[in-house]
């Protein structure tokens, strides 16, 4: 049964999007991405180190022709910085599908939704397809959709915290009301967290630290792949009703 994941009119097989930060080496990054079966990876835009130009490049390990690079604005605290970063990313090679993240606080890395909405509006007008990292507030995500976001990406918990989805009610509400894909971005710590996101009906999961900081990142990447698939299938299958009391699984008649 085909279950295609579509973002901004592009089809993808995997519903797991992975970050490429915090790995020990590019080789490990590439192996983890492969094990995760991801079609999309997030990447950051940074200055080239002029003093040490012989450092390896991410592009030498992950071919942007075979995997979709999703440039992000991680580390940006204002609309101006975020816009500058994504315009540079577009100039690098025509990237129009981008991840916007405008942070508001260094301790919590919580999104600044006022700047985020403002930036989304500008980027959409400039022809970008904007996937937006945001709070799990259904009013804010509705606003983002209104200004043209191509995907809504609420946090499950703070970036890099690994404590899993803290407000399932809100995530489910956001999914229910949105007509663009909803992807849980941030907070996933282990496989079951990713499964829960998918069981809530989300269209995908974006994670980085849960894989990169696992003791065995490549094995965790594989676990995440299966977790997302399992959660998606469980959601599509439709779970049984919860009951307060037991209900025997074997027939009760003709007992010996």
């Amino acid at each position: 049964m085909e279950d295609i994941f579509t973002i901004a009119n592009k089809n993808f097989n995997s519903r797991l999007i992975v970050g490429t930060g915090k790995y020990k080496s590019f080789e490990e990054t590439a192996n983890a991405v492969k094990a995760a079966g991801a079609d999309i990876v997030t990447v950051a835009v940074r200055r080239i180190n002029i003093l040490d130009k012989d450092q390896p490049l991410l592009m030498d390990y992950l071919d942007p022709k075979s995997i979709t690079y999703l440039p992000n604005t991680a580390g940006c605290y204002s609309s101006e910085e975020a816009l500058r970063t994504l315009r540079l990313a577009r100039e690098m090679g025509g990237w129009r599908l981008v991840k916007l993240e405008v942070l508001g606080d260094k301790k919590t890395l919580y999104p600044n939704m006022i700047e985020t909405i403002k930036s989304t509006e500008v980027l959409v007008k400039e022809g970008f397809e904007v996937m937006v990292y945001c709070t799990d507030d259904p009013i804010m995500t509705k606003k983002l959709e209104d200004v043209g976001a191509c995907a809504i990406m609420p946090l499950g918990a703070p970036i890099g915290s690994g404590i899993g989805i803290q407000n399932k009610i809100n995530i489910a509400l956001i999914k229910e009301q949105s007509s663009v894909p909803v992807i849980v971005d941030a907070g996933v710590g282990t496989a079951s967290d990713a499964t829960i996101a998918m069981e809530l009906g989300c269209d995908g999961v974006l994670l980085n630290t849960a894989i990169a900081e696992a003791k065995n990142p490549v094995l965790m990447a594989e676990a995440m792949k299966h977790a997302v698939i399992a959660g998606r299938k469980a959601f599509k299958a439709g779970r049984m009703q919860k009951k307060q009391y037991a209900s025997a699984s074997s027939p009760q008649n003709n007992l010996i």
Partner: peptide, 10 residues
């Protein structure tokens, strides 16, 4: 002059 590239990021 600023020259930028893609690096690993989340």
């Amino acid at each position: 002059v600023e020259i930028v590239q893609f690096i690993g990021g989340g």
